[in-house]
Design a protein around this nucleic acid. Structure first.
Lengths: 219, 219
DNA sequence: CCCGTTACTCACCGATTGGTGACAGCGGGG
DNA sequence: CCCCGCTGTCACCAATCGGTGAGTAACGGG
């Protein structure tokens, strides 16, 4: 019923067939993944859904089901893609790696992580997602992100052992928590606990405080 | 569902059962606000909407529009209600206030804030909401929460001045950021940066690390 | 040439969302 | 008394959501 005006002919001769979609599965898959990552990074997880991704990728949502098995699979693909994050963010020179003390190392790492997160909207959105939801979907993505972070830290740390006097794992977790929350709060509202986080000058202050904290613990 | 027995008399003398409200605007308004707070605290902001609140309050959503002017007004009412948070969370004895140093104070305050947030799901959800969205709605709620926190800190701090050698505002913001993120991550996934945050023993570790950090800065 | 596989599109489904207009029932004031 | 206003209920709207089944168009091997 109501099938009027459905069978319009689109004869190939007249005018131009606007943007002919080429039959290239690989390209389509890549377009979908890119659309998903871009959408998540720019809009956040709130409006992240099958329809929105398909709209952004300019393809039918059916293809998402076919190629990725739905949103879950797509999210998983994003997680897998996060593995490349590490490679992109490791300075290959390893120039600063003649650092002497664990304090030197952690100070440097803290600032590097701060900058890395500040310049990575996708990572931020995933982080915010982790905190706001606890579905299986998010949990798997979270695991991939956590693993990427751990790998990054391990690569950067090298073979320098932490001091035995303090519980370095716990202290580092607290420091990382601070960094992550600062970045998230800044991206969302431009401030955290009364401290403005907008201008480079603001960030200078935050970085100084962070350094002081790390130095206070590790000397 | 099946609201039969609504129009029964509510004579004050009889032992009445479960809280029946009959044409009582005040009670309805309170029920709506309570439903909104409970829903936000338990379910999070993801499924927080007119329909859900009305469902939980067992009333028609039209009343929410009438009495609060929609979700925005309701959220604002929650924000206003947050003012009571401070009063509920200040130990009146002020017993520990013979603290001598700023370091003593900040260590105590950090642990108090950690526990306060750990035991307050509503506050946690609002915090997560702030980080995930940046609508006008959230911004106003965020402001109320931020103000409540600042007031709490001020009341607890008393008249003890911070040392001039460090940028106490920035350092404290970083510490607060760490506390908030630890609590949020724990509530969501039970861990943060590889540090498990489930058992009291886990929290002991985190608290120790936090204390060490504060002491490292403020001596 | 035909024919099957593959890549892709479209129409439709039920459910739920935010939002609005109309209406019923009670109660107090004229 | 009647009437009006307040409280609460219901039906309905358009839009969007995730999800599915059926159909179409290109390609490539025989």
């Amino acid at each position: 019923m109501l099938n009027e005006a459905v069978n319009l002919e689109n004869s190939p001769g007249t005018g131009e067939g606007p943007e002919r979609r080429v039959r290239d599965r690989g390209a389509t898959e890549r377009a979908i993944l890119a659309a998903a990552k871009g959408l998540l990074a720019e809009e956040g997880f709130q409006n992240f859904g099958i329809n929105a991704v398909a709209r952004r990728a300019s393809c039918d949502k059916q293809l998402i089901y076919r190629y990725y098995g739905g949103l879950d699979g797509l999210v998983e693909a994003i997680g897998a893609d996060l593995g490349t994050w590490v490679k992109d963010r490791i300075p290959e020179d390893a120039g600063g790696m003649f650092l002497l003390t664990y304090g030197d190392l952690m100070e440097r790492l803290s600032l590097l992580l701060l900058d890395a997160l500040r310049s990575d909207p996708l990572m931020r959105r995933i982080l915010a997602w982790e905190i706001s939801e606890n579905t299986e979907q998010v949990r798997r993505l979270s695991e991939a992100r956590s693993k990427a972070l751990a790998l990054w830290l391990e690569r950067m740390r090298g073979s320098l052992a932490p001091p035995k006097a303090v519980d370095a794992a716990a202290v580092n977790a607290v420091v990382i928590a601070a960094i992550q929350h600062l970045v998230l709060a800044a991206a969302a509202g431009g401030q955290c606990a009364g401290l403005s986080l907008k201008t480079p000058k603001d960030w200078e202050k935050a970085a100084t405080a962070l350094k002081r904290i790390v130095r206070g613990v590790y000397g």
